[in-house]
Simulated assay, not measured.
Amino acid sequence: MNDPSLYRFLDEMTPWDDRLQVLEVIGIIDEAPEVKTFTFRSDNQTWFRYQPGQFMTLELPVGEEPLLRTYTLSSSPSRPFSIAVTVKAQAGSIGTRWMFENLKIGSHIRAFGPAGSFSHHNYPAAKYLFLSAGSGITPMMSMLRWLNDCAPWTDVTFVNCARRPEEIIFRKELELLGSAMPGLTLGFLIEERSSRESWFGHIGRIDAVRMPLLSPDFREREVFCCGPEPFMNAVRDMLETVGFNMEQYHQESFAAPAVEAVTAPFTNAETDQSSQAMSVQFTLSDVQASCLPGQTVLQAARAGGVRISAACEFGLCGTCKVKKLSGEVEMDHNGGILDEEVTEGFILACCSKLLTPLEIEA
């Protein structure tokens, strides 16, 4: 029997807060071979506020230490009572395979976010080209679902590349949207034919010859691209070669720069360095650590034995968000924290460096 308390108006609810609530699995759907969509709601009846195309980080209890994995949201904020990720289990994947084998309806899991700036909301345009390969279709699907709900007349060319026809994720829904959205043009490109179904569409890989066939006016469009790094590199190189205005090109990538080594706790022999160090008090852990100039709060925490969850470690995912109780930092992030959170005193530990001694709620 449905719980009557679930039927509440949006203005009677508050937005989901990743610091206070966890997610509950309410749906699991097979989308394609080795691809599933997991749909969640808040365990405290809150609603989800995010931009289409953003991502969140799931904390997966795989071993002794939780495994942090970042997944793009495939759902749309125009339907704010639930949130979904569509994930593909690659060969050798650990986190996604754990989700496939362990998450059931009613399971609870901790998550951080949403975060990221890969969204058409940040680049308004008259025409869009959403170009993806494999599971890189997920942010494009989030944006297209939002457009279908809120601006179905938008001029969008949606191109997805897959190895075989049966591996095209969301294919049936896309074909339905193609008949419902007057401005939507669909294009599929596969690498090889399949024995499971006939294929009469384009075959091959995206290049300067096939691009005009799939999107004749691609030079006039705002381009969003997501997929494996080699795919995105090929698309970017092809567009640059044909003289495309790269200010109209945007891609989603979770590739991180090299992580600096964490300096070990200081010894008495390190007097020159330690004389320049500043103290960091981690109040919840009751630990006082030292931080050298140039070190981040996250590095100081690790050196002091304090655990702060972190995934990307370059200011994008927002997983390492902690509250600053006193002191000042220099924070150079990549969109993983909101302005209002900074106003409230939150920082990203991975990209915050001390300007004064600090107190952190961690």
Rank of each mutant, 00 (worst) to 15 (best):
Phe112Leu: 05
Val329Ser: 07
Gln288Cys: 12
Glu65Asp: 13
Glu252Asn: 01
Tyr123Arg: 13
Tyr7Trp: 13
Gln90Met: 14
Gly335Ala: 11
Gly183Arg: 09
Thr267Leu: 11
Cys312Lys: 10
Arg49Asn: 15
Ile337Val: 13
Met140Gly: 09
Glu330Asn: 14
Gly106Leu: 02
Thr70Met: 06
Val235Met: 13
Glu197Trp: 00
Ile94Thr: 15
Thr343Phe: 03
Gly178His: 07
Gly201Trp: 02
Asp272Ile: 10
Ile168His: 01
Ser76Lys: 00
Asn245Tyr: 04
Lys36Val: 03
Gly187Ser: 10
Val35Cys: 09
Ile109Phe: 05
Cys291Tyr: 02
Pro357Ser: 02
Asn160Tyr: 01
Asp43Met: 07
Gly92Thr: 05
Arg163Leu: 11
Ile168Lys: 02
Trp98Met: 06
Val259Lys: 13
Val85Trp: 03
Val342Leu: 14
Glu24Lys: 15
Pro165Arg: 00
Glu240Asn: 09
Ala277Asp: 11
Pro4Gln: 06
Thr356Asn: 06
Val235Trp: 07
Phe112Asn: 11
Val156Phe: 10
Phe130Cys: 05
Ser117Asn: 14
Leu325Cys: 07
Leu354Met: 05
Thr72Leu: 02
Ser142Cys: 08
Thr57Pro: 05
Leu298Pro: 13
Ile168Gly: 02
Asp17Val: 01
Ala133Glu: 04
Gly294Asn: 01
Glu340Gln: 13
Ala301Lys: 12
Glu260Thr: 03
Arg19Asp: 13
Arg97Asn: 14
Ala125Thr: 03
Glu229Cys: 00
Glu361Lys: 13
